[in-house]
Simulated assay, not measured.
Amino acid sequence: MMTEHDGNNDDLSGGPVRVVPIALDERSYDILIGPALLDRPATWQGLPKAAAAVIVSNETIAPLFLARVRAQLAPHYARVDAVILSDGERYKDWDSLNRIVDHLLATASDRKTVLFALGGGVVGDMTGFAAAIYMRGVPFVQVPTTLLAQVDSSVGGKTAINHPLGKNMLGAFYQPARVIADLDTLDSLPPRELAAGLAEIIKYGPIADAEFLSWIEANLDALLARDKAALAHAVQRSCEIKAWVVGQDERESGLRAILNFGHTFGHAIETGLGYGEWLHGEAVGCGMVLASDLSVRLGLMPPEFLTRMRKLIERAGLPVRAPRLGVERYLELMRVDKKSEGGEIRFVVIEGLGRAGMRGAPDALVAEVLDAYCD
C-alpha cells in the first residue's frame, strides 16, 4: 500500500516522500507524506487545472505557511486568493462556512476553482464541506498541518461542521484530489496539539493492527520528541490502515465505523463541555479509555487490555478521566451520535486485539463505566 520516491526531480529533495494511495475508482487520490513537501514543486504538479485557487486557513496557521503555499500555487493558477478564518473548534460552524462561500460567490469563482485546506481538522472539514456544496462540487486539496489532521481527518473524505446539539452532524462525504502531509509543519505544534494527534494514531492499533499498537508503545517517547523517522512511520501506517478501511466502506455503512473507537464518548464530552474546551484528540483519548472499559465489562477483552490502554493514553499526555456531566446527560448526547440506530447507542468496542466491532450496551452498564471514570 506504500511506495517511496526520493524527490530527485524536485528543487529541494528534503528526504523520501511516502505515497499512500486511497483506492476509490474515479475518486482515488494519493496521500503524500514527508519533510519539506510545501517547498517542493513536484508536490503541486498534476492537480486540477483552473483559473483560480482559494487557500482556506486560519489566523494561527496562515502567518506560518500561507506565503509558501501561495508561492508554489502561483505558477499554476492565474489568481490565488486566501480566506482566513478564526481558529478553534467553536468556529466550525455555519458562519465560518459562509465566509468561505461568500468569498467564492463575491469573486465569481466557477466550478473548476480549486480550494486548498491549509490547517488542522477544523479547516479541513469546513473547506471540504464548502467544496462539496459550492456549485454542487468543486475540487479541493488537503494540506494538513496538525498531527491529528495528517493521520485522520484529512483522509477519507468526511467533511462537516458542528451543530450546538451534536458534533459533525452537518456534512458530506467528499474526497479531496490530494493530501499533502508535510512533516515539517508539525514542528509548529504546541505540545498539547501534538498529544491530541497521538490519540488518533493510538486508536489504529487496537482496532486493526496489534503489532502497530506495540510499536507505538515502544516508540511513544520518540513521537513525543518529534523524531521525524518515528513520525513518518506513524503517519504512514495510520494512513495505510485508514486507506484500507475507507477503500472497503467509503460512506460508513459498516466497517468504517470502527475508525470511531472512543469517539462516541469523546463527542459527548466535546458537545457537553462546549466545543473547544477539550481538544478533539483529548476527548477521543479519554473516550478510548471508557470504550476499553466497556469492552471489558461486555466480556470481550481481559482487564489487562484496559490497563494497557489507560497507561499508554496517559503516557501520551492525554486525559484518562472524563468530566462529570451526569450520566443522563451523557446518554442524551450519545443518542444523537451518528452511529445510533432507533435511539439505541452503538459503541465501537474491541472484540480482540486488532479487531473492533459495533455493539449496543445496556444503559446501566454504560452508567457503570461513566461512574468509574468521571470526575
Rank of each mutant, 00 (worst) to 15 (best):
V54A: 05
A149S: 12
L312A: 01
L223H: 08
A131T: 08
D110A: 10
F140K: 09
I22H: 04
E282N: 01
L223G: 08
I269N: 11
M126R: 00
Q142G: 08
G254Y: 07
V69H: 04
A199G: 04
D221F: 00
V366T: 04
I61L: 08
D182W: 02
L105P: 00
T3L: 13
R99M: 13
F212Q: 08
A172R: 13
L370K: 01
A225L: 10
Y174I: 08
L105M: 15
L325Y: 02
E368Q: 14
V235G: 06
I241T: 04
S188T: 15
P41C: 05
N58R: 04
G357K: 06
D110L: 12
H163D: 14
W94N: 11
V101E: 12
L186Y: 06
V320D: 13
N260S: 06
D95M: 10
K167E: 05
L186T: 09
E341W: 05
A108W: 07
L333G: 03
V143F: 04
A356D: 09
S238W: 04
L255H: 10
D30N: 14
M169T: 13
K49P: 00
G171I: 11
P48D: 05
G120A: 01
G287D: 05
E211K: 15
E4W: 11
A78P: 03
G88N: 01
S295E: 03
I33Y: 00
R321C: 10
E193M: 11
M1D: 10
A356M: 09
K242V: 07
K92D: 13
T307W: 07
K203T: 12
V17I: 15
T113V: 10
V151M: 11
A316R: 03
V245S: 03
P319H: 08
F173G: 01
F347V: 05
E211P: 01
S292E: 09
L85G: 09
D25Q: 14
Y204R: 08
D249C: 10
L64C: 12
G342P: 02
A42Y: 02
L186F: 07
T113E: 09
D95P: 00
V151D: 11
A78G: 11
V151Q: 10
S57H: 00
I61K: 02
N162I: 05
